[in-house]
Amino acid sequence: MAQGSNHHSDQNDAPGDGDLAGRLERLDREIEKRGSPKSAGADGRSGGDASSGLAQAFRLSSEFVAGVVAGGIVGFLVDKLFGSSPWGLIVFLLLGFAAGVLNVLRSAGLVKGPGQ
């Protein structure tokens, strides 16, 4: 409404005309806001951003364990294949530990992902 009265004093026109100018102004802003359909898509995306904080927390919860477990499985398979028990398990558990730490750092965004 402030805009409408502003136009009044600016243009010094009839009241109906000032209202029209205000409405045109509103239409302008509306159209600019809508912009292209692409920005509307960005709007829809923001809903995902809101929940991605919680999603992040859920991600972190299992990344580390998964790294250690993957290392353990690989170590176990290596031991089974080459009969190197228990060295494969030990080495790959350590590597798995490192991978778990890497996973956590990566999903926390502290280290860049692979190939980036």
Binding site: L24, L27, I31, R34, P37, A40
Partner: peptide, 23 residues
């Protein structure tokens, strides 16, 4: 719908330009 909205927006833009020209 996206196409329809884009079309409507373009139409609104065109009409706005027209009304501006008329003004």
């Amino acid at each position: 719908r996206a196409e329809r909205i884009a079309g409507d927006l373009a139409e609104a833009r065109r009409l706005r330009a027209e009304s501006k020209a008329a003004g």
